[in-house]
């Protein structure tokens, strides 16, 4: 019995690989817009790997959080690289997700039979926002602190139960070190685990219904005598290699930003966040990261906080 047989009779790795890559058929007319799903997985992996290293040096207390990051940036070998990769990674993840979402809207990938694929995608976007927001609070800079306060106030606007919910999440009557530690737990354990589980479900749904394509024709409706869709191409090697080309192109842009303009002149790392959090001084303007800006604009456009929050959520 060969080693492969020994393994596969106990754990069917080869079967799994065949079923989901070698004998999984994707439409052969997938274009540029279909790269962003696999790129999103790449971004998520970058975030998890760089995040693990950041976690080794970050100290989640109000007194040490800001300093521990500056310590990492200056005195930990390549600490700056990991931090910038994580910060640029967060913004890149949203660029990719928004392209991915745009593709789904443009080609109608939310229609039958892909409704659950779409809904799980929407949930993933919301989870990614929660993950990004809790991560944004961790450096404990001025904008971290005040952004936390604004979002907590949105919870506080819920009628009757708003205040207890707000206090439960922030763990205190105001945003404080307790809030920082809760957000730390959410950011490094709770949300990533849920996010990964949702990614798994998203992929299960995708592999059940198959990819849509720009022409909107179901490839499964037109199978050959061998039962293989006539317009389908095995995912591996044809799309794995195509996705690798896209990954390399993406990484060229990604590393150009990481190495030459990691803060993107205040767009990826806001200037205001280079001041340690001070609960007594409100920054002249509190604004969220660019990827949350449209939702924040909706919130701000409605004078009533509750109605604004409802408009934002429905947006």
């Amino acid at each position: 019995m060969s080693f492969n047989q020994w393994i596969n009779s106990r754990l069917p790795i080869s079967d799994f690989f065949d079923q989901h890559l070698r004998q999984y058929y994707a439409p052969k007319n997938l274009n540029f817009w279909y790269f962003f799903g696999s790129l999103a997985i790449l971004c998520l992996s970058i975030q998890i790997i760089s995040g693990i290293w950041l976690l080794m040096y970050y100290e989640p207390t109000a007194k040490t959080a800001f300093d521990s990051i500056e310590f990492m940036m200056r005195e930990v070998p390549y600490g700056w690289l990991l931090r910038y990769v994580h910060a640029v990674g967060a913004s890149s993840f949203f660029v990719i997700l928004y392209f991915h979402l745009y593709r789904a809207l443009m080609y109608g990938s939310y229609q039958r039979p892909r409704e659950l694929l779409w809904l799980s995608g929407v949930l993933l976007l919301i989870l990614a926002m929660a993950e990004a927001y809790t991560g944004y609070v961790l450096p404990w800079g001025q904008m971290s602190y005040w952004a936390a306060k604004v979002i907590m106030n949105i919870f506080g606007a819920i009628p009757f139960i708003g205040e207890p919910i707000m206090h439960l999440i922030q763990g205190d009557y105001v945003v404080s070190e307790v809030t920082l530690q809760r957000f730390f737990a959410f950011h490094v354990v709770a949300f990533p685990m849920i996010l990964l589980a949702m990614v798994f479900l998203h992929l299960v749904a995708l592999h059940t219904v198959g990819s849509n394509n720009p022409d909107g024709i179901e490839i499964k409706d037109n199978k050959g005598a061998d039962g293989i869709p006539k317009d389908g191409v095995p995912f591996h090697p044809y799309f794995t290699i195509k996705d690798l080309v896209a990954a390399a192109a993406f990484l060229i842009i990604f590393f150009t930003i990481v190495f030459y303009n990691p803060t993107m002149d205040g767009l990826f790392l806001e200037k205001e966040n280079f001041i340690p959090a001070n609960p007594l001084v409100t920054p002249p303007e509190i604004k969220p990261s660019w990827y949350l800006a449209p939702y924040y604009a909706i919130l701000r456009a409605v004078p009533n906080q509750l109605l604004g929050a409802l408009a934002m959520i429905s947006g």
Binding site: W80, L81, Y84, A248, I252, F255, T256, V258, F259, Y260
Partner: peptide, 12 residues
């Protein structure tokens, strides 16, 4: 950063 950057991007 800028010194390493050119090598990384060249490789990519």
């Amino acid at each position: 950063r800028e010194k390493i950057g050119s090598w990384v991007i060249g490789y990519m």
